[in-house]
């Protein structure tokens, strides 16, 4: 791959931001994996392929809410972006069936987060 120059930054940013509009992100750091995020990821992968919905399944690091792992963030156009906590196998399937396909937010699994960002 060619070496990065100062001119490439904006193009990369535009490309990433113009990427997938519908996505599911699984927190896959040591803490998440220890709490079962690996299994959650595989179940989501399996269920998404069964349902055939074009959603990007992504991984990310740790949000810091260890008590609520595994954490799964879901962004589907037209629905509020939410973070689900303690996502068991059952809940992972329900995220795909209920949230992605059924366009309904799941009851009793959402985690609301309150923090300020130091910069934007």
């Amino acid at each position: 791959m060619a070496a990065l120059t100062g001119n490439d930054f904006d193009a990369i940013k535009a490309k990433v931001q113009g990427g997938a509009k519908n996505w599911i992100k699984v927190g896959m750091s040591t803490c998440g994996i220890a709490a079962g995020a690996g299994k959650t990821y595989r179940v989501l992968e399996d269920e998404l392929s069964k349902q055939g919905h074009p959603v990007s399944l992504l991984t990310c690091g740790c949000l810091g809410m260890c008590y609520a792992e595994p954490l799964v963030e879901v962004c589907i156009e037209g629905l509020p972006r939410v973070v689900y906590c303690r996502v068991s196998e059952e809940c992972a399937r329900e995220i795909v069936r209920g949230h992605v396909m059924g366009r309904k937010l799941l009851q009793d699994y959402i985690l609301a987060m309150h923090y300020e960002e130091a910069f934007s």
Binding site: C60, G61, C62, L63, H114, Y115, E116, E117, A118
Partner: peptide
């Protein structure tokens, strides 16, 4: 907003 994310801002994102 008691938390302020600077170092962790992009962790988990």
């Amino acid at each position: 907003f008691r938390q302020m994310r600077l170092v962790l801002k992009n962790c988990g994102r």
